[in-house]
Design a protein around this nucleic acid. Structure first.
Length: 841
RNA sequence: GGGUCGGUGGCGGAACGGCAGACGCGGCGGACUUAAAAUCCGCUGGGGGAAACCCCGUGUGGGUUCGAAUCCCACCCGACCUACCA
């Protein structure tokens, strides 16, 4: 610590009657910080940047405990970085498009825009109460035209690059409301419409998609380089779902090819039937007249069931025989073709070869319908006996497989693929579970897709200079929930930019995940070129600023975004790189997922359960610092936990005691007295130990033990204050250090105390205390002496006492003697500075 | 069905091969007070003992080790995510 303290004039500013009053000091400092622009962001090439980002909130209208739990520790970590010398960017904004605004519009007949901005207004006030270092000068609101002009600009860039395309795809449709539904509007196992309760059906509509699958491999491989939590990486890997295998071409008896994908080409000789998805295009053709009625019935049922319950995955498998047969290319066998809804049209080719002996689903299906089960893989021990269940393991060797008999697994898979390619029967292939990203929403409150349909010119993108395609302010909201854009004549009718003739706008808007896929870039220069004509050569932010801040160094947020948002924003960044907008591959280098804060009953907070904790109430009662500290103290940040209304008192009492330690006058007779060197040394040691502990903990997001260390230090100070140490320089250094160490977490009280200690400049601009490891060292350590692993004595010695001396001391101890008496000492384990274990027997 | 995280006092949790229970809540006892609240001080895993001390304890059962809450194997329970992926 470099600053020199001036103990004499400090004590003058302290007064006995001055109690800790968060109600006064918190608004006072929030106002001062804002006036002085303490958290204004400045690009400073002289300093190392740190871009700290926390997931932006949806403006639902009220800041809840979950927001506090997600944001305040994130703020503390960012503040610590700042005090440690980084130039920190910690922006905030609102993810302001989306369904709730539209529901409110219908329910209360209020325009979503008005509802949204009103909520933002309210939440801004609540966010400011947190005492966080938000860069309000860079705030963005995704529903602002100055923001969504760029969302639309990205769409056009993607369209130009072939990354955005239109295709027929099924959507959830409520036949009663006569409208499409978003995924979150479909409720429960029964998949009913949230508004009217009618079972939802699927309907095919033309939909816009982003070609995220182009980056499937890169999204997978990029994970290895990221400092992200392993569970998120695993979820993304599973979501992308890369699997390697082969495509093999079967043929119908009419000679139509049916391509199947399999990860187990080594089991081709065990294919005893084939299954098509009910929607497969060849179903009608292979079905024989005598099976037609049954097949049609099953198709109709499957079409409905597909809607009702994908969730019923564990239900018994069903299917019907089509009457048709296919020829297995590897052995020329004629096998029956079935249709079954356990085969999905959306994965692979929509057709599978069924190998009941080696696939559990096929096995169950074959058992139920009496189809042949032919074992083609012997167990490693040579077992070729009949199977009670499928044998899916990739070990053993091939049997009943003609030329391949005896080929051992797992090499057999590669050998068969090579043979398939040589003979033209199939080829090596990779499949992904990942689908292209469907971004069309038949909704009004989203960024309009900037496309025009012209009867003459076809699909025409809106010219860049005509952006933004603005949402109308006068749309009418019908209780049916239909998109008002479709019925807004002024919006829909437009002149074709190419031929000038009458044309129509696309009325779908974009998925809100599109807005949040690039918001970390928008923060760089909010509303950059808002209202100006754009061109494809533009950059959506000021280049120099972007070069300085990007990419994000630390991202924090909930794990619920593991597969959607976090995959989409990675895709965006990779696409942006290929468009020449950025020169890096990944948007967020580090990620940390906080857990979920639960109600006092240990259950998820929900209005229906009545266990919702309103943070404003506690802020009003204890102040923001207590709420911040309590949320960090509750337990490990990544684990979350229940809100305990009585435990918060502990943190409040701690702050009260800190106040009194720093502010209250020490006893004059103690100040005048001379402390012993031991007393001084003990406080100095604790001081440096605390700096080390707090620094390590805040760096590692271990806020709970960080707060505990601060409490411990304060407890030590309370004791020291009753000794002559209060008159020594070490005391002044200790309370200064306590205030500095508390600053990232308890932002207001530390600022107030810092000023009361006689400082002019904000505590948040101070350098983080540096520990001296020498001064943190213990002079004496307790060495535990065990006999056969049980503690029998303790030795207090200097840390560097040698093994031999420790051994001697341990054996000389009367307590130890008692336990080894009459027994033979077989071994003595000595861990210097820690323990001695005497093994007798 | 698959995946991930977790199971430690009355409660939240700490320790993550070396003194189990830091820190906090709650509880008990004491000080202050006419009294209460607040505040301050002390004690607080269970059992035995007058005490020194001793025994038992980290979901269950095994294993590795001088030594296991911690590492390995099997199982039980809970939370979250995901779901017929060929």
């Amino acid at each position: 610590m470099s600053d020199q303290k001036t103990p004499n004039n400090q004590s003058n500013s302290r007064s006995k009657n001055d109690r800790y009053d968060p109600k006064t000091i918190e608004p006072k400092w929030q106002k001062r910080w804002e006036e002085e622009g303490l958290y204004r962001t400045v690009e400073d090439p002289e300093r190392t940047k740190w871009y700290a980002l926390t997931m932006l909130p949806y403006p639902s209208g009220d800041l809840h405990t979950g927001h506090w739990y997600a944001m305040t520790p994130s703020d503390a970590a960012a503040r610590w970085r700042r005090m440690s010398g980084f130039n920190v960017f910690f922006p905030i904004g609102f993810d302001a498009f989306g369904l709730p605004a539209e529901n409110a519009a219908i329910k209360h007949n209020i325009h979503p825009k008005i509802w949204t901005y009103r909520n933002i207004e309210r939440m801004r006030g609540q966010l400011k109460q947190m005492g966080a270092m938000w860069a309000w000068d860079r705030e963005v609101i995704t529903c602002d035209p100055g923001y969504y002009q760029w969302t639309q600009w990205f769409f056009l860039k993607f369209y130009d690059a072939g990354l955005a395309y239109r295709e027929r795809a099924p959507v959830d449709w409520c036949p009663s409301c006569n409208t499409t539904l978003a995924r979150e509007q479909v409720w429960g196992e029964e998949r009913r419409c949230e508004r009217c309760g009618t079972p939802v059906i699927k309907k095919e509509l033309d939909q816009w998609k982003f070609r995220i699958t182009k980056y499937a491999d890169e999204l997978l491989e990029g994970l290895d380089k990221l400092d992200w939590p392993e569970p998120v990486k695993i979820m993304q890997r599973n979501w992308i779902g890369r699997s390697e295998g082969a495509e093999v071409t079967f043929t119908t008896e009419d000679g139509d090819p049916i391509v199947v994908f399999t990860t187990r080409p080594d089991t081709l000789w065990g294919a005893t039937f084939m299954v098509l998805a009910p929607e497969h295009p060849l179903v009608d053709k292979v079905t024989t007249p005598e099976h037609r009625a049954e097949v049609e019935a099953y198709k109709a049922e499957a079409a409905r069931k597909d809607e009702i319950a994908r969730t019923a995955a564990d239900k018994e498998k069903t299917g019907v025989f089509t009457g048709g047969y296919a020829i297995n290319p590897v052995n020329g066998e004629r096998i029956p073709i079935w249709i079954a809804d356990y085969v999905m049209m959306t994965y692979g080719t929509g057709a599978i070869m069924a190998v009941p002996a080696h696939d559990q689903r096929d096995f169950e299906f074959a058992k139920k319908y009496g189809l042949e089960i032919r074992r083609v893989i012997a167990g490693p021990d040579g077992d070729t006996g009949p199977l009670e269940e499928a044998y899916p393991a990739k070990e053993g060797f091939m049997i009943n497989s003609g030329p391949f008999d005896g080929t051992p697994l797992p090499e057999a898979i590669d050998k068969v693929i090579e043979w398939l390619e040589k003979t033209g029967k199939g080829r090596r292939a990779v499949q992904y579970r990942l689908r292209d990203w469907l971004i069309s929403r038949q909704r009004m409150w989203g960024a309009p897709i900037p496309i025009i349909y012209c009867p003459k010119c076809g699909t025409v993108p809106v010219p860049y200079e005509d952006l933004p395609v603005r949402l109308p302010d006068d749309a009418e909201f019908r209780p049916t929930g239909e998109s008002p854009l479709k019925y807004h004549e002024g919006f829909r009718h437009v002149k074709c930019p190419k031929c000038g003739g009458d044309a129509e706008r696309e009325t779908d808007t974009m998925d809100t995940f599109v807005d949040s896929s690039w918001y970390q870039y928008a923060y760089i220069s909010p509303y950059w070129k808002a209202g100006e004509p754009l061109s494809p050569d533009d950059l959506p932010w000021e280049k120099a600023k972007g070069d300085y801040w990007l990419p994000v160094d630390q991202y924090t947020g909930g794990i619920e975004h593991a597969t959607m948002h976090l995959l989409y924003t990675r895709f965006f960044t990779k696409a942006m790189r290929d468009l020449g907008l950025v020169d890096f591959d990944e948007p967020m280098l580090r990620l940390y997922n906080q857990g979920m804060i639960l109600g006092p009953d240990g259950e998820k907070m929900s209005k229906s359960r009545g266990n919702v904790v309103n943070p404003d109430e506690y802020v009003a009662k204890y102040g923001a610092d207590t709420v911040r500290g309590y949320l960090m103290f509750i337990g490990p940040w990544d684990q979350g936990g229940p809100w305990d209304p009585s435990a918060i008192e502990g943190v409040h009492r701690f702050l009260y005691r800190v106040w009194s330690v720093v502010v209250d006058e020490p006893k004059p007779e103690l100040v005048a007295a001379e402390p012993s060197p031991e007393e001084v040394r003990a406080l100095e040691r604790k001081l440096h130990q605390t700096i080390i502990k707090v620094t390590e903990d805040i760096a590692g997001f271990r806020f709970n033990t960080m707060v505990a260390a601060l409490m411990e230090f304060n407890n030590a100070l309370i004791k020291a204050k009753e000794t002559p140490v209060v008159g020594s320089p070490i005391w002044e250094q200790a309370i200064r250090t306590l205030v500095l160490l508390m600053a990232p977490t308890f932002t207001h009280i530390s600022e107030e105390l810092w000023h009361r200690l006689g400082n002019e400049e904000s505590v948040h601009l101070q350098a983080w205390p540096q520990a001296d490891p020498e001064k943190a060292k213990e002079e004496a350590v307790t060495v535990v002496v065990q006999v056969n692993g049980r503690v029998r004595d303790k030795l207090v010695v200097e840390p560097n006492v040698s093994r031999d001396v420790l051994k001697e001391m341990a054996l000389a101890s009367p307590n130890v003697q008692k336990w080894i008496d009459g027994k033979q000492v077989r071994k003595v384990i000595v861990v210097p500075g820690r323990l001695v274990n005497v093994v007798v027997g």
